[in-house]
Every structure is written in structure tokens, then in C-alpha cells.
Design a protein around this nucleic acid. Structure first.
Length: 284
DNA sequence: CTATCTGTTCTGAC
DNA sequence: TGTCAGAACAGATA
């Protein structure tokens, strides 16, 4: 799925476009993509769009919320007469007409504009939740990287609970830190010059400082560039994705590293993991 | 054609 | 408990 920077990019885009619009209709094309009662959203005004971890939260009147998790291939595409704003991992259907065969949910607003939830693999979902239900889900996530609770000290103390866990799996655990996925994880560890296989118990305070800074830097860079999109994608209106031009290791197996070494790939916890043996140290 | 890969996360078995 | 494979699904790639 899109990770924190991509979801944040979507949030900002939607905030500009659907805030204060009233939902006129919801059509669920794929039943499993929508959990809850879609009719509860009809007639409600969009108050704001928020993000928690990788969730997009559309706040509605009457303490209702449309909560989206895009997982691997989910997209939110807004269309009115003059513009298209797309968010989520791209596919060629962005250029195609909407709805199309990957459209799972269609939201129509009173002004006639539409928000499409597309999802090729159908892993993603939209849930209609009231405030209490939403709060419960939010509580399962660790701190937001850009919140005051996220500190070097927090990382160090959290690591005590899982001493044997590899740093890669630690950073990707949403209950420890919210929003980091496979791309930004590998990029952050590359920037911190630490091998993803290093057990968290091996990190000293100075190492955690490096991890902390690397995570914030890479996420900030990702947001600044509007997230990461596939290389062959040509954006319709230039709103999305320049971060792929700044990636140092992700999906670069066999390519030279800036240090003269070569980017390698291995598997950690079932996930492809990219690294430079020469730059990144296995702490012992 | 077959095998393996993919930006996620939840569940159930050990 | 912590860890791990497998599942949910539909492709693209080698």
C-alpha cells in the first residue's frame, strides 16, 4: 500500500477537494470492499480529512467516519469536470475512464462530482465507523512519527520488549510506529547505515539517534515529493509522486551504490529487503 | 507455461 | 507470548 507519505499526500489532496461536500450516494461494486452500512454516509457533510498511520479518515457529521485502508493497490480518485486527482499506487487505469473494472466503491457528492475507490487486488477496504469505533482502531497503532511521543527514548524503550527482533521488522510494526512500510523502511536504514538484520538489542543510544533522524528525514522527503509512484507512470496533472527519484536502495538490486558497492536484496520476514553491504553495518 | 514477485496486515499454528 | 507461514487477491515479471 501507500505508506505514510503517500497517504498524507492523498489526505492533503482530498482535503482541498471534498471538504464541505455532501455525500449524495454510495454505490458498492464489490461487497467485501465496504464494511458497515454505506447508507449512514448518505446526506452527511464532509467535515475534514485526517490521517492516522496509513488510514485515510473522512470525518462526517453525526460522529460518522469513512475510514480507508488502501493496502497494496488501493486508490482514491476524485473527479470533477475540470480535474482529476489521484492517490494511491498507480496503474494504467488512471488514464482510463472511471468507473472501470477495478472500481470497488463510488461516492457521489451533491454537486455531481465523484470519488472512486479503486483496488485491483481487493485487499483494501472502506469502513463506516462511528467515533468510538474509530478511536478503538486508532488505539492499536503506535505513535505517529511526527508526534511529540515519537522520540529516541521511546524507540529505545520499545526495543526492550522485543530484543531479538530485527530492526527492519521492528520499524515496520505498526503497533510500535505508525506508517512505515517496506520502501521507507529500507531507505531509512540505508540512511542510518545500519543493516536491516541487526537485532534491536544491539543498538546503542547513538544508533537509535541515527534511526530516529533517518526515519523523520526520509518521511519528510517523501511527503515533500508527494510520495513514491512507479517509474512508468506519467501523471495526469502533476500532483503525485517524485519520491522514486530519491530512492537509494529500494528495488535497485545489482545497481551501484554511491559508495561504489552494489545494492543487494534479501528476504526479512517475507519481505524483499534492499541494502548495501558496504554502507550498512551489522551491529554486534 | 511455470514459478516467483509485489508498496499490507490479519489469523492461526507452533 | 513471540515468531512465522499462509491467506486474502490479481496481476506483472523472469
Amino acid at each position: 500500500m501507500p505508506e505514510l507519505p503517500e497517504v498524507e499526500t492523498i489526505r492533503r489532496g482530498l482535503d482541498e477537494r471534498i471538504k464541505d461536500k455532501r455525500i449524495a450516494n454510495v454505490v458498492v461494486e464489490n461487497k467485501k470492499s465496504f464494511i458497515g452500512d454505506p447508507s449512514l454516509a448518505i446526506g452527511k457533510n464532509v467535515l475534514s480529512i485526517e490521517r492516522r498511520a496509513k488510514l485515510v479518515i473522512v470525518r462526517l457529521e453525526n460522529e460518522q467516519n469513512l475510514v480507508f485502508h488502501l493496502k497494496m493497490t488501493g486508490q482514491l480518485i476524485f473527479i470533477d469536470r475540470s480535474s482529476r486527482f489521484a492517490g494511491g499506487h498507480p496503474s494504467h487505469d488512471w488514464h482510463a475512464k472511471l468507473p472501470n473494472k477495478y472500481t470497488r466503491i463510488i461516492f457521489t457528492f451533491h454537486d455531481g462530482t465523484n470519488l472512486y475507490f479503486n483496488d485491483l487486488r481487493k485487499f483494501g477496504w472502506c469502513k463506516l465507523l462511528n467515533d468510538a469505533e474509530l478511536k478503538k482502531i486508532e488505539s492499536t497503532y503506535g505513535p505517529e512519527p511526527f508526534s511529540p511521543e515519537f522520540t529516541v527514548k521511546y524507540l529505545q524503550e520499545a526495543a526492550i520488549r522485543f530484543p531479538n527482533r530485527k530492526i527492519k521488522q521492528f520499524l515496520m510494526d505498526q503497533s510500535i510506529i505508525a506508517g512505515i512500510g517496506n520502501i521507507y523502511n529500507d531507505e531509512a536504514l540505508y540512511a542510518a547505515k545500519i543493516m536491516p538484520t541487526t537485532a534491536v538489542s544491539k543498538l546503542k543510544h547513538s544508533d537509535w539517534e541515527k534511526v530516529y533522524k533517518a526515519v523523520l528525514n526520509i518521511l519528510t522527503l517523501g511527503i515533500k515529493n508527494g510520495g513514491t509512484t512507479d517509474s512508468d507512470f506519467v501523471n495526469v496533472d502533476g500532483k503525485i509522486g517524485g519520491m522514486q527519484n530519491f530512492l537509494k536502495v529500494y528495488r535497485k538490486t545489482g545497481e551501484p551504490c554511491e559508495c561504489g558497492g552494489e545494492i543487494e536484496k534479501m528476504k526479512i520476514g517475507g519481505r524483499g529487503t534492499y541494502f548495501c553491504q558496504k554502507c550498512q553495518k551489522e551491529l554486534k
